[in-house]
């Protein structure tokens, strides 16, 4: 089963543990400046949101690369950068609509999320569950469950159809 990183901004506190974990796994140092996942702070709104590569099926970065340095890992579904082949031309950074492929001045190569080979450190490090690694085909499962939970209490019945009248408040419950 392939999995995907599931990001739930309403649970994010902006602590950057994901960035520390990502940079440590990939670079061997704690260094948010080299993290493949970034947390954004929308200060005046009081909101935080983590963001990273969604591993597009038809990946713009992969198709744009002139030297075929970005390849599909069939075991994880991740599009991975082959450092030995990357020439640092940055065309992929232009091609990606989401900005999740970026250049690294220190190495002269590009960096992007590779799902840590199927064991993403950001998800393991997140203290609030804002980042999880779930079944690729069921990233909506938790939200579906939350809606399903709106079903009125009491025994199931075939003749009293009811729809949720109070949709779940998706702002973070503090």
């Amino acid at each position: 089963m392939l999995r995907a990183l599931n990001l739930e901004p309403q649970k994010c506190t902006g602590c950057l543990q994901c960035e520390l974990a990502c940079s440590y796994e990939n670079e061997g140092v704690f260094n948010p400046a080299r993290s493949r996942i970034k947390v954004f702070n929308f200060h005046d709104e009081g909101r935080f949101a983590p963001y990273t590569c969604t591993q597009c099926e038809q990946a713009w970065c992969l198709h744009a690369c002139p030297v075929e340095a970005i390849v599909l890992n069939t075991a994880t579904g991740a599009k991975e950068v082959l450092e030995d082949i990357c020439v640092g031309c940055k065309v992929c950074t232009i091609a990606c609509p989401f900005g999740t492929v970026n250049y690294n001045q220190d190495s002269g190569k590009v960096i992007k999320c590779d799902l840590c080979g199927g064991d993403p450190w950001c998800a393991k490090a997140c203290p609030t569950g804002a980042i999880s690694y779930v079944d690729l085909d069921n990233t909506g499962l938790d939200r579906m469950r939350a809606w399903a939970q709106q079903r009125p209490a009491g025994p199931a019945s075939y003749n009293t159809p009811q729809s949720p009248t109070n949709p779940t408040d998706f702002t973070r419950q503090n």
């Binding site: 506190t13 902006g14 602590c15 950057l16 709104e45 009081g46 909101r47 203290p127 503090n174």
Partner: peptide, 12 residues
């Protein structure tokens, strides 16, 4: 509006 963490804090 929300709670917020300092750098690296898992308490928030």
């Amino acid at each position: 509006t929300t709670n917020a963490a300092c750098f690296g804090c898992t308490i928030a």
